[in-house]
Design a protein around this nucleic acid. Structure first.
Lengths: 148, 148
DNA sequence: TGGTAATAGTTCTTTTTGTAACTAACAAGC
DNA sequence: GCTTGTTAGTTACAAAAAGAACTATTACCA
């Protein structure tokens, strides 16, 4: 007796999510990599600081769900490129506050425009309502909005 | 003058897709890793062979969009575990056909049940129509269904 | 106070991945 | 036949990631 045929790999959500995420990440990376030679983690750190302002490494870890060693190395590279500076906190001298330099902020603004263009291209394939629903679903799946 | 405030990192699709994909992959991996000590690429190879039957490494590459060196190593591990066998094609002796062994097929059936349960849990958060739309959108974003 | 535990961040070591070069087999043109 | 080019798959080397152990600082608490 053959296996029951209900399962469809192409429809399995974790698999499909990965294909879509990889495709969009890679094709977007092709855009910004050529621009600043930046890796994905560096991009993420830059964007967190750009959109949320001053943050600590741990705060970025929690918000972006990236391992702290990755953050540590990305921060180092961004410091080397003079895109951000560390500053020891006076209240708690273990903590270092990260903030963009002028150059870092300029790079952020530039890359943000690139991101907006890219996003626009993705959204053009769907209706406004579809995109809104997609976001809600992805946020839920990512565990950002716990349904409680 | 402050930056314009339109861009939202938390809504940026490539970023959100990655968070959702990573979260679902990791939480699903926690389930099957403890079961067979399998890595994601091995899981994918096993599932391709289980759902589509006999395939070559190149066919899996194309279908799953995984680099051939990753496939090569995953196949080797699955052979070591006696989950699949290679067989040189007679028509073209460069090609090797991959097929699951009895043990491999049993593992596939077992893991497929796990996958179905997991999928069920994910889908329970949404309506049937929402899930259907999500799939369509993800397939489009993954470049599986080219809109042409 | 002194001692234990926790936290922020880095560094060291091991796995995993990606790139490029390689072998073997086939294919096409001359 | 030979020469060139292509394809299937592996292997070798370099880059990146994950995990564990480490330093420095703070917090708790007896």
């Amino acid at each position: 007796m053959p296996d029951k045929d209900e399962f469809s790999l192409q429809d399995f959500l974790p698999y499909l999510l990965n294909l879509a995420a990889e495709e969009s990440s890679l094709s977007f990376q092709r855009v910004y990599k050529n621009r600043y030679g930046m890796l994905r983690t560096e991009w993420r750190v830059l964007f967190h600081l750009g959109t949320y302002g001053e943050m600590t490494a741990t705060e970025i870890c929690d918000k972006a769900r990236i391992h702290k060693t990755k953050i540590s190395r990305a921060v180092q590279k961004l410091v080397d490129r003079r895109f951000l500076v560390r500053e020891r906190s006076d209240e708690d001298r273990r903590v270092e506050k990260l903030k963009l330099t002028t150059a870092g902020h300029a790079a952020f603004r530039d890359l943000r425009a690139v991101a907006e263009d890219y996003e626009e291209k993705l959204r053009a394939q769907f209706t406004t309502g579809e995109v809104a629903l997609l976001r809600v679903m992805l946020r839920r799946l990512a565990g950002l909005d716990d349904p409680k």
